[in-house]
Nucleic acid binder design. Structure first.
Lengths: 113, 113
DNA sequence: GTAATCAGTATCACAGAGTATACCAATAAA
DNA sequence: TTTATTGGTATACTCTGTGATACTGATTAC
């Protein structure tokens, strides 16, 4: 039990390391929803700056969370797509969306929980 | 679909707002695992400082995530316990622990994914 | 001719998240 | 007697995540 707790914590922290930060999950969610172009992703996440999106996408590409493809048409077309690895966050994201919905319901109901 | 995406994002961001930060989830997990005393929680999360734990617990108390009880024995005994509300993060935490475990397996297997 | 879109990059700046270290008074254990 | 534990607070510091703003060069639209 003692040992198990430490193993759990480590697993939790590993995950947090990969999907931590304010924008990581919203971006993953956006590209998993089919947004591919830079500006498209940007527009789908109100409040994010180009700087942050650029930085996060670069990080995520390095960590094999997204695939960046350059189509050499003219003008150049660039697409971001989630890797399979990236899609493994599906469960986590869905449960977080669920939680957020429930939370909002409770707030609106004026629950004092 | 467009509308839906925005609602999803909002729900996701609401959740992130509540459980964001480096220590929030590890703390929730710790008290949900039965750790009650300040030093006990502290010891269960190697690397956290008393200052951060103190700050987070205070925040979480204000936000009804933990209940702080003072037992007026001598010496004074203080206990932190998760509220029902806090336990609603169970699903999220479990799926994050799962992910972390799988991730580590893959790393150890030397997978290049 | 002007404006808009595309995929970003470049600077600068800042709050606040997080760290490090020391300390407190009371009690209990060695 | 000295040390350790408890539940924190105080102070000072670092640092980086995030924000704001401006700009690029090529292309297309009005």
């Amino acid at each position: 039990m003692e040992r198990n707790q430490q193993e759990e914590l480590r697993a939790l922290q590993d995950t947090l390391y990969v999907i931590g930060g304010k924008w990581r999950l919203p971006i993953i969610n956006s590209i998993c929803n089919g947004n591919k172009r830079f500006r498209e992703i940007e527009r789908s996440i109100p409040g994010i700056t180009t700087r942050m999106l650029s930085k996060e996408l670069k990080d995520m590409e390095m960590n094999k969370l997204v695939k960046r493809t350059v189509y050499d048409d003219t003008p150049v077309l660039i697409e971001y797509e989630p890797t399979e690895y990236c899609r493994t966050f599906g469960t986590i994201i869905l449960s977080m969306i669920d939680w957020g919905r429930e939370h909002r319901k409770k707030i609106i109901e004026g629950d004092t929980f």
